[in-house]
């Protein structure tokens, strides 16, 4: 009998598998086809202060080994999430959920985190300072040590819930940003958000995405994500949620060996709606195969 449980910022998860924000909506489409309570938890769609449509379409493109998205944080706004989405979510998800928060100013991050942090269902705030698809917000907070520390500090003082800061890989030195967040009081770090990329339609001779650039995710980014998790593990003393191209139970184990306490699954959910379930189901046999009895014992094991 293997033990898949892990502890993330004081909350025990049955397993480390967490569908990533933006690839799982609010869980409802998936709850229609399987019981999503088998998951460790999930991180719901990035939420801002006001309703947003996001970027013009097309905002999805295919790439080798993955995809680009330039959705641009479409969401119904924090009030709607609290008044309508979270009450509905209670009917199909009974664990603590991770609330992904984005914004265009420190005040917005603070307001949204403070409101969502008061919700009993919310276990963690995942602070998205790394969205590559919005201008004047998102990633601009996560590419500079000072602003990363400041927004982290401001949000920490506005909520009692653990704050996990989600980092962008589109920086020169991700470790310095991770350290800045730790100094700002972050309870954890999640990485990586998508890598900025683009495609050009050679028939039209124009960019495929209306936004020109988009975030690259999918199995192709896995080695880059793994490398960054490995590096950040050496740079900080707070738990890491690893993500980027995770598509199998073996990928989860690899991420944990690199230093992840829990692991998010992103684009894989979009091509196979059962992907996260298959990963959860695949963990015990994979652990047995590789001689692992207690999953949390392997965290950072490759160092």
């Amino acid at each position: 009998m293997v033990n898949t449980s892990v502890e993330l910022c004081g909350i025990t998860l049955d397993n480390p598998v967490i569908p990533a924000s933006g690839t799982f909506g609010y869980g409802k489409e998936f709850a229609e086809i399987y019981d999503i309570n088998i998951l460790g938890t999930f991180s719901f769609k990035g939420t801002t202060g006001e309703e947003r449509f996001g970027n013009p379409t097309p905002r999805i493109a295919e790439t080798p080994g993955g995809m680009l998205n330039a959705v641009g944080l479409q969401n119904p706004g924090v009030e709607h999430v609290i008044d309508t989405v979270l009450p509905d979510m209670k009917s199909y998800f009974h664990k603590k959920v991770m609330a992904n928060v984005s914004g265009f100013s420190v005040d917005e991050y603070v307001r949204v985190s403070s409101l969502l942090g008061k919700e009993e269902q919310v276990g963690w705030i995942e602070l998205n300072i790394s969205c590559p698809n919005v201008h004047g917000g998102g990633m601009s907070f996560g590419t500079n040590e000072r602003s990363a520390r400041e927004v982290t500090k401001a949000v920490k003082s506005a909520t009692d819930k653990p704050v996990i800061v989600k980092l962008s890989p589109n920086v020169t030195d991700i470790c310095s940003i991770a350290k800045a967040c730790e100094k700002g009081g972050a309870d954890g770090i999640s990485l990586i958000n998508t890598l900025m990329g683009m495609r050009i339609d050679i028939r039209r001779k124009k960019p495929v995405l209306a936004n020109v650039t988009g975030g690259y995710s999918g199995s192709g980014v896995f080695p880059v994500a793994l490398r960054m998790v490995y590096q950040v593990f050496e740079a900080v003393d707070i738990p890491i949620v690893g993500m980027g191209g995770v598509s199998s139970a073996e990928d989860v184990i690899e991420m944990m060996l690199a230093g992840a306490t829990a692991v998010e699954v992103g684009a894989a959910n979009l091509i196979d709606p059962y992907a996260s379930k298959k990963i959860v189901d695949g963990l015990p046999p994979a652990m047995e195969k590789y001689g692992i009895t207690t999953l949390k014992d392997i965290i950072g094991g490759a160092h």
Partner: peptide
């Protein structure tokens, strides 16, 4: 028709603005 990601409502890649909201 719109360029889709998942095809089942999870990624919000193919959203359109309508008189009844997004």
């Amino acid at each position: 028709e719109e360029r889709m990601g998942c095809g089942f409502g999870a990624c919000m890649g193919c959203s359109v603005k309508t008189a009844n909201g997004f």
